[in-house]
């Protein structure tokens, strides 16, 4: 039960992050929100594993964390290439 509550709580955080991602306003806010969303997903999966008593999903959580990180780095590398003054919103 506690896991369920925790999962719900994490979902709430994810929702907040998602809202920030939609709202922006700057591209960095979005990236930040995406990153936050990703790490919360990692936690959610971990909790979910315990919730369903199949904790061997943790590999997926590791993958998520990894992919999230690489994704963020890729986004930042992309943003770096943009010429000044033409930031996307």
């Amino acid at each position: 039960m506690i896991f369920a509550a925790a999962a719900l709580g994490i979902l709430v955080v994810m929702g907040l992050a998602l809202a920030r991602a939609f709202l922006g306003p700057s591209v960095y806010d979005r990236i930040l929100a995406v990153n936050m969303f990703g790490t919360k997903t990692v936690l959610l999966i971990a909790v979910y594993g315990f919730l369903t008593e199949r904790p061997d999903f943790l590999d997926i959580a590791i993958t998520y964390a990894l992919i999230n990180f690489i994704g963020i780095i890729a986004v930042l590398k992309f943003v770096e290439r943009l010429d000044n003054g033409t930031l996307p919103d």
Binding site: D56, F57, D59, I60, T63, L66, I67, F69, I70, A74
Partner: peptide
């Protein structure tokens, strides 16, 4: 467990991509 050649391949590539 979950996983296999495809996922492994992608993650391996992701490491190098990083």
């Amino acid at each position: 467990g979950p996983g296999g050649g495809f996922q492994a391949g992608v993650i391996f590539a992701a490491g190098i991509i990083l």
